[in-house]
Each structure stands twice: as C-alpha cells, then as structure tokens.
C-alpha cells in the first residue's frame, strides 16, 4: 500500500473514532447532518419504495405450483389487450385508497384522539423489522413517544424525530416495552417486551416478523395460547384497547420459576406501507 494511501487511512480512522466518541460517549446526534442526508435521499427512497410495492403486486411468486401458473397464464391470456398502463395505475390507486380507508376506519375508532397519516419510506438495514422511517417529522407536529398504528393493529412508537422524518421503533424492537391486558372479561394486566433477535424460541421463531414476550409467575396470570392482548389504560403512551397481538406459545422457565408467553404482533410488520400516528395520545388518554 502506498504511503499516501496509508496517510489517508489514518486520517479516516481518526475521523471515525472522533465521530464515534462524539455520538457514543457525548450523545451528539448530528441532527443537521442526518436531516441533510435524508433531504437529499428521501425523494429517491420514495421512488424505490413505490417501485418495490409495484413489483410486489405485479411480479409472480416463483413458488407457485405448475397448475397455479398454468391457471394464471390462462387468466392473463384472457386479459391481454385489456390491461394497459392506465389500468395498472388505477389498480395501484385503488390499493392505496383501500389502505387509506382501513386507516380511516381505525382513525374513526380513535375519535378522542388526533391522528395523522404517514408513509413508510425506509426500513432498518438489519434483518429485522424493528425500525421504520416515516415521512413525517417535527415540522408535521410529530414528537417522540407518539403511538404508531396500521391496518392490522399497533405497530410501535416514534423513537426519534428529525425535521422532515422520524424513526419508529416497532413492538418487536429491542427496548420496546408496554403495558397490555388480556382481551377477555377480567383479563390480566401484563408487560410486553420486544424480543428483536434475542432468545427466540425454537420451532415458532419467525425472523421476518419477530415476537414479543410476557414473563409472569404461575400465580399472577393464566395466559394461554390464542389469548389476544390489547393495550392497557395503564399505559401513558398508547390509547387503551388497541390490538397488540396474540399468544402463540407459553413456556415454563424452570431456572427462573417463571412462565413466558410469546406474543406475535397482529400487524404484519413486513407489509406496512402506511401508518397512522396518534398525535395527542397523552392529552386524550383517560
């Protein structure tokens, strides 16, 4: 390696260590730089996200069986000449509008709360759906800890806000924790924690969606598989009664003398395109 290259490398290492020191130990967030990068890249990110949604709708699933493919070909042959660019556009608009309608229904259920819609414009580069980027930020009235909901149920909460965008930590993200209640008469109060990639139980582990866990003593609760969990009125962040997910497995931890129940989120976190943010959760909470 040439001496010039080595010098550049040392300068680069110095800059990186200095930035790590500032952001790690001194907790500098470099908001201005993040905003700048996001402002430049967000238009392209939006195009990519739209293209990805379009491709998902229009490209055939390679795992389809031969019969299904033949059937699909027959169907497509009858439609040749009819399906044009205008139709595709209309279909995509229809899908978007149905998603918006679903969000509007949820918004209707949350009458006491003010809500605003947002598009998901990026996902964490990790292998887990633990972090989203949405296209609303401080300038749109978004603040940290605001609950985020989608068609299927609760998604998570806003974890960081910048000028024109925000980060959302999902229910399964490490560090996510909330009060819940079993959705039946006299249902127990529980605390759910996002598991992210950690300690996933064998056999039911789904890396593409992830799970939450509830730990409880045998005398405290009678949770069983299939129980639905909703948000509790104890929570200061989330409106009560929102569907969180359902118990998919319970297990006894002999070492800790505790039971653990694994909860799968009701929202399909891998398919979230649009979300609803509750902007006055704490004000309206009873």
């Amino acid at each position: 390696m040439r001496r010039k290259t080595v010098t550049y490398l040392w300068i680069g290492i110095g800059i990186c260590l200095f930035l790590m020191l500032l952001s790690g130990l001194l907790a500098r967030r470099f908001t201005w730089a993040r905003n700048m990068v996001h402002t430049v890249l967000s238009p392209v990110t939006r195009i990519f996200s739209s293209a990805s949604s379009w491709a998902e709708e229009n490209i055939q699933d390679p795992t389809l069986s031969r019969e299904e493919l033949l059937k699909r070909i027959d169907e497509l042959e009858t439609e040749v000449g009819q399906l044009k660019e205008e139709n595709r556009y209309l279909q995509s608009q229809a899908r978007r509008s149905s998603e918006l309608e679903a969000l509007l229904d949820i918004s209707g259920e949350l009458e006491a709360y003010e809500t605003t819609g947002a598009n998901v414009i990026g996902l964490s580069p990790s292998n887990y759906y633990d972090l989203y980027l949405i296209d609303k930020g401080i300038s749109d009235g978004i603040r940290e800890y605001m609950p985020v909901i989608c068609e299927g149920g609760l998604v998570g909460r806003v974890s960081r806000v910048y000028d024109s965008y925000a980060e959302v930590i999902t229910l399964i993200g490490e560090g996510s924790s909330l009060y819940g209640q079993v959705n039946r008469p006299g249902g127990d109060l529980v605390v759910l924690r996002g598991m992210g990639a950690s300690g996933q139980p064998k056999g039911i582990y789904q890396a593409d969606t992830g799970l939450m866990e509830i730990r409880f003593a045998p005398s405290e609760s009678t949770l069983s598989v299939g129980d639905e969990i909703v948000t509790s009125s104890l929570s200061q962040i989330y409106p009560p009664g929102l569907l969180i997910g359902s118990v998919v497995r319970t297990q006894y931890l002999a070492e800790e003398e505790m039971y653990v129940a694994y909860v799968k989120p009701s929202a399909d976190l891998s398919q979230v395109d649009m979300v609803l943010i509750v902007t006055n959760g704490e004000d309206a909470a009873p």
């Binding site: 040439r2 010039k4 290259t5 550049y8 490398l9 680069g12 290492i13 800059i15 990186c16 260590l17 200095f18 930035l19 790590m20 500032l22 952001s23 790690g24 470099f30 730089a33 993040r34 990068v37 996001h38 890249l41 990026g122 964490s124 580069p125 972090l131 980027l133």
Partner: peptide, 27 residues
C-alpha cells in the same frame, strides 16, 4: 484508495441514516 474512500463515505451515510454510533460502519 477508491475502496477505502467509498467505504468511508457510504458507511458514514448508513450511520447518518440509521446508526446510533456515527462512524462505526464508516470505519
């Protein structure tokens, strides 16, 4: 030179976009 430079800039962009520890991926 080009590999290191591109790695530094792209790592920094990834850190600014998502990372909590800026400079980690860049390094």
């Amino acid at each position: 030179q080009r590999g290191g430079f591109a790695g530094f800039v792209l790592g920094l962009i990834q850190d600014l976009y998502f990372g909590s520890l800026i400079g980690f991926s860049a390094l």
